[in-house]
Every structure is written in C-alpha cells, then in structure tokens.
Simulated assay, not measured.
Amino acid sequence: MSEPVAAQRAGGRIGVVGAGTMGTGIAYVFAAAGAEVTVVEPDGERARAALRTAATQAARAAERGRLDAAVAQGVPDRLTVVADVAELPEGLDLIVESVPERMELKRAVLAAAERRSPRLLASNTSGLPISELGADLDRPADFLGLHFFNPVWSMPLIEIVHSPATAPEQIDAARAAAELVGKETIVVRDAPGFATSRLGIALGLEAIRMLADGVAAAADIDRAMELGYRHPMGPLRLTDLVGLDVRLDVARNLAKTYGDRFDPPQLLVDKVAAGELGRKTGRGFYDWPAPD
C-alpha cells in the first residue's frame, strides 16, 4: 500500500479530474491552501473558465480578509490544466475524480487515475457506491469517497465514505486532506446516498413535488424550512445551487436501491430536459444573474 497523504507536511501535490462546478471548487481550495494542483479538463473553454473562477474567488477572499493577499495572488500560479488523465504527474498525494454522476464514466476515469500511482485516490460522488466504483481498481485499499459540497470554498463539510476495502490509515489521510483545506469531516460507510445525499435528496424531491402540486411558491416553501426549521437555505434554492441535473442523477441512482420514494418528480425531469439546471445556467426554480 502506498504512503498516505497524512505523511505530507506542506500543501502537497493534488490532481482533480473535471473542471465543472465541483471540480473547480475542489481545485481552488487546495490551491488556496498552498497545494500544487493539476486539473484535468479536455474542454478548453471550461478549463479557462475554471482558472478565471479560481482567480476571482481568491481575490474576493483576500478582500474579505479570509485569505492572505500574497497567497491569493499565487493561487493561479499553483493551478495547471491538462487535457487528459494520462498527463497527470505520477505519485501525486491525492487525486480527486469529479466528473458527472455516471457509473461507467467514473470507473473509467478512476482506473486511468490509478495508473498515475497517487498515494490516495478519491471520488467526489454524491451517492454512487464506493465499492462498485472501485471494483476494478488494483489498489482498492487506497480508494474512498470525498464528498465535497457546493460552493466548495464556503461549505465547511467533507463527507468521507469508506468501503470495506478502504485501509483505515487512508481514512486518516482523508481527514488530513480535509484539515489542510479547513474542512470538518464525517465518516460514513458505503451505502447508496451515504448520509447527506440520502437526507438532502429526500427533502429536495418532496419540495419539488409540493411546488408541482401548487402547495406554495418556491420562495415560500424555502422560507418555511429556513424560518421554521432553521435551515440556512431552503431545499429548492439549494437544488438550484447544486444543479438540477446533479440532483436528477442522484435521485435516479437512489431509486434503483430504495424504490419509488426517490423517483424524480416530472417537474425536475422537465426542467433538466429544458436546460434549466439552476444557477449555472441562470434559471432553475429561481432566476439567477449571469456569473461574473
């Protein structure tokens, strides 16, 4: 078994596969923590957008006093983009896969990432079984789930998901990686939906059903949970933030295990088909301003 990330003392060397919303956030928080980060993204425009987002977020963090100005200025220099997993440096401390929630796609990406011999390999899945994702890996003991939350730079939690094959010392390594980027952790065993997605999706789907049934407007449904249950954000606004397409993928995966209670409402299916994916497209259950 390879040396765990916990043995690394400085920022470390990190790989992130995928420069979507989550991948960009993951890459940013590690770069802001001093790590050298290599991001895999074949789409040139998406790669450029990720670098712009990281630079903008670093500048904002410095303005708000949350990040040292010199560290913020160095964030873009600590980010490198390559077009293929095979271009990742060998022997990285950690590689985090953050591609769409498709089992076969993730398994292919993870197999390619493992060939780069990272000390720790992780999936940022929201709910796909870690055991199944790692079924074809040569070193399943070095593989686990690191479930980040959006927006990664402000959400304080990382959910560490371990399979029966995951080595205990690699769970410790995952905790160390989370500590490096200033996050709190929970550790859960490998079960569909883990802890957070299973609870969050259940609430989000019911809120969408209520909206479709005309129970109340989206803002009032959200306000009920914010004021009545002290949730920091209502389930519909949170779905917009996470991405309606992400929520749809997770719901469909959970329905395979837990049955029709996780069947996605038709309203969610229709919005995704129409390209209304939430904040990232400017429209979901709310209208959103264009990103900077």
Rank of each mutant, 00 (worst) to 15 (best):
E3G: 01
P4G: 03
A7H: 13
G12T: 08
G12S: 07
R13N: 08
I14A: 03
G18Y: 08
G18I: 12
A19N: 13
G20I: 11
M22W: 09
I26W: 05
A27P: 02
A32D: 01
V37D: 06
E41A: 10
D43E: 13
D43C: 00
G44F: 01
E45N: 12
A49H: 09
A50L: 01
Q57R: 15
A59F: 02
A59L: 09
A62E: 05
E63F: 00
A69M: 06
R78S: 11
T80N: 07
V81P: 00
D84M: 08
A86S: 15
E90L: 07
L92E: 09
L94W: 13
K106M: 03
A108C: 01
A111K: 14
A111L: 13
R115Q: 15
S117L: 08
L120P: 02
L121P: 09
L128T: 04
L133Q: 08
A141Q: 15
A141M: 03
F143D: 00
H147S: 11
H147P: 09
F148Q: 01
N150D: 07
N150A: 07
V152E: 02
W153I: 00
M155H: 05
I158L: 05
T166W: 04
D172G: 09
A173N: 09
A173V: 01
A176Y: 03
A177R: 02
E179P: 02
V181Q: 06
E184G: 07
I186K: 06
V187W: 05
D190L: 14
A195H: 13
T196V: 15
S197D: 11
R198N: 07
G200S: 08
I201H: 05
L205N: 09
A207T: 08
I208Q: 10
R209N: 13
L211H: 09
A212I: 02
V215I: 14
A219S: 14
P232V: 02
P235D: 06
D245Q: 11
V246I: 13
V246D: 02
V246L: 04
L248G: 10
L254W: 10
K256D: 06
G259S: 03
D260Y: 00
Q266A: 15
L267T: 13
L268I: 04
K271M: 15
K271R: 15
A274S: 11
G275L: 03
E276F: 11
T281Y: 04
G282N: 12
W288Y: 14
P289V: 09
